[in-house]
Structures are given as structure tokens and as C-alpha cells.
Amino acid sequence: MAPTPSLPTGMKAAPLPVATRASMLLRCLAIQGSWNYEILNGNGIGFCVEPALRHLPGGVGGDAYREALARQCAYFNAHPYLASLAVGALARAELERTPPDRIVRFRTALCGPLGSLGDRLVWAAWLPACSLVALLLFGLGLGPVGVAVGFLVLYNTGHLALRAWGLGSGWLHGLRLASALGAAWLQRGPQYIARGAALVAGIALPFAANRAIGGGASIEPVPLAVMALTPCLAFLLVRLHGKVEGWQLLFGLLAILVFYSTVLH
């Protein structure tokens, strides 16, 4: 396939139609649909950028389209939510007919920052924070609908906003994406969310534990024992970090409990 010539310097791509942007955003929700150990998220990126590539000269199946789609399906990895930044920026770069080697270099350089930033912001901060808020809602007495809906609305407000912002911001900045990645809220967000989550966790756990035990007076022997032993067991789990996971330990503990209650007792 002969390389397609780039647009003259300074030429801007026309704004994407709303339907194309909506299609790209919707596809971003399935960006990890074909995640695999061969090309990781490469196919997913190609899948999400594809609606924009239809606007290349020659349309679907044209040389420009096929060259661009091939480039976008190569090996790629990033956090799934922040990958929408890459999708927007790469779509713009392709439609502006940026030289292919620049696009490939840019694409490769994006993997690391989008992965680590997304992991810190979403998996290690926003998700646990929302989860802990849900535990607090439970502890405060909300019912199944209140807790589940409260969690889903809170989490997905951040989730969908991040994906939509990523796509829009990627398109806006194109290859100059570094300025978007340097935004203060993105860099400092994990820190603020983590602090809030830590405080919520402290308040939520006693409330949630109290309600799950039955909500009775906390001066009775069982709730008191739970209150006293929980920090000890938690300390042990922190000390065992890297050697054994908490859920594995709990499985063992419960197996002993089942044996005691059904056979020995």
C-alpha cells in the first residue's frame, strides 16, 4: 500500500459530526472487548477510532482508511477510561494526515502515562472511594435500592465524565496531548480522592460492621469482640502483604468455622 500524503502544514481537520463522536464514545465503553496477550488493547483502539477514519479521503475501504486503521490496530495498552484521550488524539492526527511515523511514535509514547495515571486515578482512588461511600450508605441504614443506585450514580458520574472528557480533550489537543495530561485535577486528583476515601473508610467500616452484625448495642460481647479484634487482624494482614491475600485468609477462616459449626459443635 503506498503511503498517503499528509495535509499541508497547519491544515486542521474539520470538526467531527455529533453522530461520529457519539459512536466513538459508545465504542469506548467496549474498548477492552478484545483485550488479549498478543496486541493487548490494539484492536480496541482501532475499533474506537474507526468511525472517525470513515471521513478520510476515499471513505471506508479507501487506501487512507485502511492504512490508518492498520496503524491503530497495532499493539497498544492504556487504562481503559483514559484510552479515550488516545482515541480522540489519534483520530485527529489521522484526519489531519499527520505523517505516519509521527503518529506511531506518539501512539507508543502514550501507553505508559495513560496506564499509570488511569490506574492511580480510577482503580486506586475513585473506585475504592465510591465503594467506601456505598459501605457508608449501608451503615447509615439505606436499603438495597438506595445503596446500589447511590454507588452506581456516583461511580458512573465520574466514569462517564472521564471518558467523555478524554475523547473531547484528545480531539481538541491532538498530538499536543501533554497539556491535557498535565491538568492539575488529573495530577492531584488521586491524592485528594484518596484522602477523602481514607476518612470515609474510617467512618464507614464501624457503621457497616455494626449494621451487618445486626445493629444491636455495641457493648454486647460479640460486637465488642469484633471491634477489638478487627484492628489486630487487619494489622496481621498488612504485615502479611505480598505473602497472603485477605480473601484467601478469610476463606480459610470460614472453612474452619464451617467445620466447627457443622461437625464439631
Binding site: 467500616l205 452484625i213 489486630c232 487482624l233 502483604h241 485477605g246 478469610l250
Partner: peptide, 12 residues
């Protein structure tokens, strides 16, 4: 609850 709360506390 002792086990679950301890896992959550250590996770936090």
C-alpha cells in the same frame, strides 16, 4: 464481619 472488616481495613 470480623474477617471482612479486617480485610477492608487492611486494603484501605
Amino acid at each position: 464481619i470480623l474477617g471482612a472488616a479486617a480485610v477492608a481495613a487492611s486494603a484501605v
